[in-house]
Amino acid sequence: MSPARISLVVTEVTELVPGVRGLALAATDGAPLPSYPPGAHLVLDVPAGDGRPRALANAYSLTGENVEPLEYRVSVLRCDPATGAAGGSAWVHALEVGDKVEAHPPRSLFAPVRHASRHLLVGAGIGITPLLSHLRSHARWGAEAELLYLCREGLGAHVEDLAALAGESVTVLHDRAAFTALLRERLRDQPLGTHLYTCGPTGFMDLVHLEAADAGWPAGRLHAEAFGTADLDPGEPFTVSVDGEELAVPAGVSLLEALEEAGHEVANLCRQGVCGECRVGVGPGSGPVLHRDLYLTDEDKAAGDCLMACVSRAEPTDDRPAHLEVIL
């Protein structure tokens, strides 16, 4: 299920540090926007064009006030398409005040654990953004927090914001060796009950987790921000034959939606692959099925005779395009 898009307008553009652009986005009618958990991200629709072969959905951590916000704030590092970046950040860097933007409502995959007695936040580079949001919330609720931030001198976004929120609980370092030494020390001196949150380049997060494991931290206390786009994955287009008719299911459209659009009635409820209502039969003329539901058992899937139409799709093979024969 993808909830309705929200329409936003760019109200402020700032160069936070060289290469990082801060963006404020407000509702087109100026009303308060939906609240969101600290560490949540906003997925912006990036249109095709300007060297982007297809439309993109780019996730950016929200950095501003999260309760009843009048605007959503994101900070975006410019990644050069010449080095393989898909071009979403270049598009953000070209936005101007007054431009309209479509977004999915905020999504949360990196919320603070409120049960923790203390929060150790460890960020590098642009990975500071969700941690800034965490720190705001901890300041509001008087929760104990400590933040370690590795960034290049003069290129660390939000250094002043962090200091204003948490003062001496924030340490900013520019040298990797010094950072690792401090991290090692701080990991061994956190009261039982502390949880750790890290965001930054993958290699950096791996390092933090390895150091934490060395210091005896169990996995349940470790949290990393990895933009989970799997659940937003629009999928690849495929074709369906049903009742002697051929349907095309484009990327971003579910089999269920395609069947409904073609006038077929399919029982359904949750539209998220959970409830089991929209199970449809799959005939022998089908290619492999990409099961993405939580309902069918492994045995069901191995039998290969059904799928959940709201989330699952067809997969291509080396010698034939993605196709399903659906039996209603």
Binding site: P34, Y36, S108, Q272, C275, L294
Partner: peptide, 9 residues
């Protein structure tokens, strides 16, 4: 599994 994935709002 469904509930832990429920999104804000």
């Amino acid at each position: 599994q469904f509930l832990v994935r429920l999104q804000p709002g």
